[in-house]
């Protein structure tokens, strides 16, 4: 039997999570490089209802792992159900998107099987028959190629955006779907999750903003936010921030950009004193032009910046604000 890759896709309330397609693309790429077979699994209360959507992609087979106990999601039930599937099907490599839900259960699942997860990968390499996964370390300042040093199954999760979901190839004909009833004993599930909810309604919608001035921890103190605000006012831009700024209460939560904040795509995104951690980048990398001011020439934000200004924001920003005002005043004449 050839080795298989199993992609476990993610769904919420019967809707497939967009990043699932990215993981399918990753699986297809690894299958092409290694010659291994690709299969997929959907997990949930009524997984078979959306298995067909996955079966339309170029995969050998889709498992619909079902049990009423898989709804709502709990790490205990998901780890139990997937352990059964993996033990029965014995894939070589198990791939998942690095979502909050996967982070919540995959280390438990792998540990229960005595295996490891290479987490939050951004790519893979197949070198001389050896599969290595690339992941960021030190908050994106360095990258590492990591290999498995254990028997299969190997687990790897891919970072949001690491592969293009729209590049997932369709199959010539729908893949067969096998429904697998997960047997989850009473007492396995210990957590009782309540309904998901959103905190107070968002007062600020930055998704339509044309120009955004975003501040990060480089601003140092709450009172210095004013410096960024003045620039934003001069530009007619919206003010936004990285998470620590909102955690500190220096700006309200609804101005936070990133994986736990808003996702924006303005014409111009001006990042002041933001290091460029992936959780921030996912929220703003769709911006048409990114301008970054940072005193550290190796800050990861410069990897995605169109314009880089290496320097102290306290030196750079005030004259910039003045220049914007001056030019605007001239234009108004």
């Amino acid at each position: 039997m050839p080795d298989t890759i199993l992609v476990v896709v993610e769904q919420r309330e019967g809707k497939l999570n967009r990043v699932s397609w990215e993981t399918i693309t990753a699986g297809q790429a690894i299958a092409a490089a290694t010659g291994w077979t690709l299969e997929a699994a959907v997990v949930g209360g009524t997984a078979s209802t959306f298995a067909a959507e996955v079966a339309a992609k170029k995969v050998g087979k889709v498992y619909a792992v079902e049990s009423p106990k898989l709804e709502p999601y709990t790490p205990d039930a998901f780890a139990a159900a997937l352990k059964q599937l993996l033990t029965a099907k014995q894939p070589k490599l198990v791939l998942m998107p690095h979502t909050y839900q996967v982070r919540d259960f995959v280390p438990k699942l792998a540990t229960a099987m005595g295996r490891a997860v290479i987490s939050d990968c951004i790519g893979f390499k197949h070198e001389n028959g050896k599969l290595v996964f690339t992941r960021q370390m030190f908050q994106g300042k360095l990258a590492a190629d990591v290999s498995f040093n254990s028997d299969a199954p190997w687990f790897a999760t891919f970072q949001n955006g690491a592969f293009r979901g729209d590049k997932a190839e369709d199959g010539a004909s729908p893949a067969p779907i096998e429904t697998v009833a997960a047997d989850i004993a009473d007492g396995v599930i210990r957590n009782k999750p309540q309904e998901a909810f959103k905190e107070a309604k968002q007062a600020v919608d930055l998704t339509q903003a044309e120009v955004i001035v975003a501040v990060g921890r480089g601003i140092k103190e709450q009172k210095n936010i004013e410096i960024a605000k003045q620039l934003a006012d001069a530009l007619g831009a919206d003010l936004a921030a990285s998470r620590p700024i909102c955690d500190n209460g220096w700006l309200p939560m609804d101005r936070q950009i990133g994986s736990s904040g808003q996702t924006v795509a303005p014409k111009v995104y001006l990042a002041l004193g933001i290091s460029g951690a992936i959780q921030h980048i996912v929220g703003m990398k769709g911006s048409r032009t990114i301008i970054a001011v940072n005193k550290d020439s190796e800050a990861p934000i410069f990897e995605i910046a169109d314009y880089a200004i290496i320097g102290n924001l306290f030196d750079i920003v005030p004259p910039l604000t003045e220049e914007v005002k001056k030019v605007k005043a001239e234009l108004a004449k």
Binding site: G140, L142, F148, N149, E303, A308, I309, D315, P318, L320
Partner: peptide, 27 residues
């Protein structure tokens, strides 16, 4: 169970233009 084969500075894929000079020139 997992081994770091090598660590490196990530390769830049985007073309970045540096804006240099005194703060006033940069502005």
């Amino acid at each position: 169970l997992q081994k770091i084969e090598r660590l490196y500075v990530p390769q830049k894929t985007k073309k970045t233009e540096h804006i240099e000079g005194s703060p006033v020139e940069i502005a």
